[in-house]
């Protein structure tokens, strides 16, 4: 197989397991570059990458930007301010503009679910989904899978708990998909308002009591909780949420002694995760960030038709 035989990377569901592993394996090669003094390679020289962000994002945008720059691509950064009240150019017209710029890759972040899917059907460029609404965040899932494989060698057999606002989380959806695919047991933990029963269709277990399940988990994946959810009556207060679902120092002590703590960032210290936990040796939150760049480089490389990289090149 030569690279990824596909135009777009839109969600985990549309990737085969082989493709997932191919991306993770290739990321190793790119990560090895980061310890060198010259971190760029000319793989995407002459190619144009457009970052089209309809939603404010620092981490994901910078991660893609760095990945594209380290591959020597030309970069266009388009940040579009949107709200339902003030609307600028329609997406379809923006698409035509980008087509005219001859962008090879469009990395899209959008607050509306399925916007990248809509885009991909109407443009020849490769579309990479950098997060759409509550739907999918495939590159986050890939970098999380890569991080776990790097740490544990394999995901198969791990029991991974995803904690928090599952309902509004694209990260949770993409991650449960990839973790299940790679053989993990996945449990979702949160209040029923944020973890509706429909999620059992992913063949995951649902728990409302974090304390009970915590000692069984190999990985605790914490999600960011948004204060606005309180207004929607999803939970009564941050105070109560913290008490029942935050990963506190106290709760960390109930975990397995080799537990891995993850978070997609940005973290809310003192809300869903305590300082001591975020900064503890169990946490791989910073490693996730580093790996994000490597995984995104691998995705660009493979979508551009790059051949699988073997172990020797990693040395």
């Amino acid at each position: 197989m030569n690279g990824l035989q596909r135009k777009d990377l839109l969600d985990i569901q549309s990737l085969s397991t082989e493709e997932i592993l191919l991306i993770c394996n290739s990321a190793k090669y790119f990560k090895a570059l980061f310890t060198r003094s010259i971190k760029t390679v000319p793989i995407l020289r002459g190619k144009t990458v457009c970052l089209l962000f309809y939603e404010p994002s620092t981490r994901t945008r910078i991660s893609f930007e760095l990945a594209a720059k380290r591959l020597s691509a030309d970069l266009i950064n388009i940040a579009v301010q949107t709200s339902s009240v003030v609307k600028g150019e329609s997406l379809i017209d923006t698409v035509h503009t980008l087509e005219a710029y001859k962008a090879d890759f469009i990395v899209m972040r959008h607050a509306a679910s399925l916007a990248p899917h809509f885009l991909s059907r109407n443009i020849k460029s490769s579309v990479i989904n950098a997060g759409d609404g509550n739907h999918a965040h495939p590159t986050q899932a890939l970098l999380d899978a890569y991080s776990l494989i790097e740490k544990r060698g394999d995901i198969e057999g791990l029991h991974i708990g995803i904690v928090g606002d599952i309902l509004h989380s694209r990260v949770a959806r993409s991650n449960m998909e990839i973790f299940k695919r790679l053989g993990a047991r996945v449990s979702l933990i949160g209040p029923p308002t944020l973890v509706p029963d429909e999620f059992t269709m992913y063949a995951v277990d649902i728990y409302y009591d974090l304390n009970t399940i915590l000692p069984q988990l190999d990985v605790v994946y914490m999600l960011r909780i948004q204060r606005e959810r309180q207004q929607g009556s999803f939970f009564p207060s941050i105070h109560e949420y913290h008490k029942r679902f935050a990963l506190t120092n106290e709760r960390l002590k109930r975990c397995k002694n080799n537990v891995i703590v993850m978070h997609p960032g940005p973290i809310n210290r003192g809300i869903e995760i305590d300082d001591e936990v975020a900064d503890s040796p169990y946490s791989i939150i910073n490693e996730q960030v580093t790996n994000g760049v490597a995984v995104r480089m691998a995705i660009f490389y493979l979508l551009a038709g790059g051949a699988p990289l073997d172990e020797k090149e990693v040395e």
Binding site: S84, K87, S90, L91, I92, H110, A111, A112, S113, L114, A115, F118, G133
Partner: peptide, 10 residues
């Protein structure tokens, strides 16, 4: 057409 040819949310 242009009213439907946008993000499903909008």
């Amino acid at each position: 057409s242009h009213e439907k040819m946008q993000e499903i949310v909008f």
